[in-house]
Structure formats: C-alpha cells, structure tokens
Design a protein around this nucleic acid. Sequence first.
DNA 1: CCAGCGTTTGACAACGGTTATCACGACTCC
DNA 2: GGAGTCGTGATAACCGTTGTCAAACGCTGG
Lengths: 130, 130
Amino acid sequence: MQRMTRQRSAVTELLADVEDFRSAQQLHELLRGQGNGIGLATVYRTLQSLADGGEVDVLRTGDGEALYRRCERREHHHHLVCRRCGATVEIDGPTVETWAAQVGAAHGFTEIEHTIELTGTCARCAAEGP
Amino acid sequence: MQRMTRQRSAVTELLADVEDFRSAQQLHELLRGQGNGIGLATVYRTLQSLADGGEVDVLRTGDGEALYRRCERREHHHHLVCRRCGATVEIDGPTVETWAAQVGAAHGFTEIEHTIELTGTCARCAAEGP
DNA sequence: CCAGCGTTTGACAACGGTTATCACGACTCC
DNA sequence: GGAGTCGTGATAACCGTTGTCAAACGCTGG
C-alpha cells in the first residue's frame, strides 16, 4: 500500500514546478537547497515508483544518465528537447506511430515498441550564441 | 595517427562476423575465448574510436549499457532490434526524417537530431514461445 | 488519543559499466 | 640502433544507481 510521506510529496511538488528534464541528483540538490532534507536513495526510489506508475517520463541521456520530467499528458508521446537548456516540447506523431508499426510488421516483428526523441537548439538558446 | 595493431584488427574482424548488437564486455569475452588476449580497456578504446569514425553504431540499452554493431550502410539509418535475441534489421525512413525536421522547425528549434529505435520480438523468437 | 505494526527513510556500502592512470612494450623515422 | 611516439593492459578511480538495515514514521483499529 502506498503511503504519503513528507518526502514523497516534496518530490512530486518539485516536479510540478520544474518544466524541464532533470536528473535524480539535480532534483536531490534542489530539494536540499530549499531546506527539504531528503536522502538521495529516497529520491531515486520515489522517481522510480512514479515512473512505474506512468506519472513521470524518463529519458536516457547520451551517457546513460536518467532524466525525469512530469509531463502534461499521460498518454503516449515523444519529446523535443533543447540540447542547451533542456526546454522540452511534448510531441505526438500519429505519422510515426503507424510508420513504426508498419516497419516492424513488414519484417515479421511483433510487439513493436519505439523510442523517438528529438534534440535541437531552441530559439532562445540559438539567439544567445555560443 | 591511427596505427593498425593486432588488437585493433581482432576487434574489427570480430565485429565483421557478429551480426547483432553486443556490449563491450561481451566482445571482450568473445575475444578472450577465441584465444585473442586483449585488455578490456583496449576493447573500450577501440570501440570508441570506431564509433567516432562512424565505423560502428552505438545503441544504449534501457539501463544505460552501450551496445556496438558494425552496420552494412555507413549512411544515417535506424534499427529494428529483437528484444530477445538481438537480431537487427537496418531501417531507413525518409518519412520520419522529414517528419522530425518539420516538427523541430515548427517549434523554432534548429540543428535537429533524432533518435529512433524500434524494438520488437522477431518471428523466430516469437515461434519459440516463452 | 494511543499502541502496534508494517512501510519508508537515509546513511552508507556495494555494484556495474565505463574511463583515467601510468609503466611498459612496440613501432617508426632518422 | 637510438630517440621519440603511440598503443597496451592491469589496476584504480569514477559515477550513477541500487541494496542494506536499523531507526523513524504514518496509518489503523481499539
């Protein structure tokens, strides 16, 4: 049975405020910074259980680090992420969904899943220059 | 300057034989097993340099492990991978390329890159049952 | 309100994949 | 053949993440 603790609500509230994908360690630091004492292990556990429940989305960075974000929509969708500032736009692409299913079926594969993530530089970051 | 050593050619030859995505550690074991003494660090280094040169493709598994594979085509493409046996089909999708570029541009993002990977169960594995 | 009990927490250790270190060996060019 | 360069490999360090376990906590029924 799931219990509501101070730590758990601190994490969910923080996620509600933060727009972009953040690592577990960043979230831990933020919580510490705002006076909410919390253990790192607890942050990981909480994020994991939220992810399992589909409450947050998980993204793997190029070097294997996991990033978390609370998304607007709970249904299946993808992301367009700024490589500079992490700003994120939620995307849904009926086009690619059907494309993925067709390609899989064409090669005799079943139970197709797909990972689609777009990365770019957002307008604001592009304006700032290097 | 790149030098051709016994270890380097052992890795590239092994990659030429192996069809599916393998982890650095698996490749290391294979090399050891076939009598080719080689250090783990060297395997990592070699794979990294091959990946930098676009000679092999790198795939990140769900838990952050890196998998390597020597692909037929050097141009940009994607993969359909069997989640059971690792069998891989190379895919190119003009559809998704243009879709990705359009979606990015529509949100003011520039220098769009995309990650698209399909996972499924191949016909052979599906036939075997659980 | 309180006691009891199962859950959650958190400091810390352990883990697993990857990368850095550095002494040694191999190769190259003169 | 000697000097300088580059590659190797055992080992240690790294870093994100997960396991451990006693203590603290939240809930529930009395």
